[in-house]
């Protein structure tokens, strides 16, 4: 009797759970029932913005629902992150972002209006993007080691450009300064292009640039690449050796592009979005366009991304601390 009773309960519980599971699956199946919004915090036309639009276009074909990109620029992505953190957890509002909002901001800023972990559900890491160190085509050095040796021999300072205080370009520049003891003078710009312009005009010795920009500028023949940061070489620039290969360890971190949903979004929906994103990212034309823009396509599961985030966070924090970069 007793046992039967319990078993009855257990069975109905199981049935209920199965039903719930079915419902969740169904919900995920028909997701999205309404238009989906990609919130991007770079200005229209930035490489992340263009990438988001490319992926949004492919997703809307799959989902038969419009996927629109909404630019919410400002405050290093704080506005956009906060906006998505507070959005309904229905998977219809997603944040497309880079490591800045979920690693750099929490490390650099004492109070943040969102919690990078508690307020979000990681969905997918779309791609990683490495940063290159470039010099004018007529620069005597051909790699990082030669550059460092030349600069030491020449004496005096070396001016390098980055796209902002606390940007990964700035972090790597400061790290290089500390590792080599060179007198590196940091000059911040509003983007990589103004810095490249000043380098081509002879006012900067070297500057950092994203992989896609470097590839495009290489085609123009006005620059040369000294080295690339990140764990390994990238498909866009297969001949460029990493800092580590050249005997400069510590530059292995690579920035990433990822998608987040608001916390408490149902697992089924997160899994569905993540799977569809992975398929889009691995489709032939998206992949080739990503590579041309300097990205290495990833497109993994939510769990893989969460694990990577946990692994990388302390390393980035260490890099940021080591660089001495501060945001007041």
């Amino acid at each position: 009797m007793q046992i039967k009773y319990i078993r009855g309960w257990a069975m109905s519980l199981a049935a209920g759970a199965a039903l719930l599971g079915l419902a969740a699956a169904a919900q995920a199946q028909e997701f999205p029932a309404k238009p989906v919004k990609f919130v991007v915090w770079t200005a229209p036309g930035g490489s992340i913005d263009v990438l988001s639009r490319l992926i949004a276009e492919k997703l809307s074909q799959r989902w038969k629902q419009p996927v629109v990109v909404e630019n919410k620029p400002g405050a290093s992505g704080i506005l956009a992150s906060e906006y998505v953190a507070r959005a309904p957890a229905d998977g219809l509002t997603l944040l497309v972002t880079i490591n800045t909002t979920h690693i750099n901001n929490p490390v650099l800023q004492s109070k943040l209006s969102y919690d990078p972990v508690k307020d979000f559900e990681p969905v997918s890491q779309l791609a990683i993007g490495s940063v290159t160190l470039i010099a004018p085509a007529n620069h005597p050095a051909n790699n990082v080691a030669e550059f460092v040796a030349l600069a030491k021999k020449k004496g005096g300072g070396v001016n390098y450009g980055s796209w902002g205080v606390g940007s990964s370009a700035h972090l790597f520049g400061e790290l290089l300064r500390q590792k080599t003891g060179l007198d590196l003078n940091h000059i911040a710009y509003k983007g990589e292009m103004p810095a490249i312009t000043d380098m081509l005009g002879g006012r900067l010795d070297v500057t950092f640039a994203g992989g896609g920009t470097t590839r495009a500028q290489l085609a123009g023949g006005k620059i040369k690449v000294l080295g690339i940061t990140g764990p390994r070489r990238i498909s866009a620039l297969p001949n460029v050796a990493t800092f580590a290969e050249q005997g400069f360890p510590g530059f292995e971190l690579a920035g990433w592009v990822a998608v987040y949903a608001p916390a408490k979004t149902s697992k089924g929906i997160v899994r569905k979005i993540s799977a569809d994103l992975a398929e889009v990212v691995h489709s032939q034309d998206v992949q080739s366009r990503m590579v041309e823009n300097g990205f290495e396509p990833v497109g993994g599961t939510p769990e893989q991304f969460a694990t990577l985030y946990r692994d990388e966070f302390p390393k980035w924090a260490e890099l940021i601390k080591a660089s001495g970069a501060k945001v007041e």
């Binding site: 036309g45 930035g46 263009v50 495009a216 366009r289």
Partner: peptide
């Protein structure tokens, strides 16, 4: 910014803007 978008449009088509 408009020219930056043109760069985006060109790279999407596999054209590296430049000389």
């Amino acid at each position: 910014p408009v020219m930056a978008l043109m760069v985006g449009a060109m790279t999407i088509h596999g054209i590296a803007p430049g000389p």
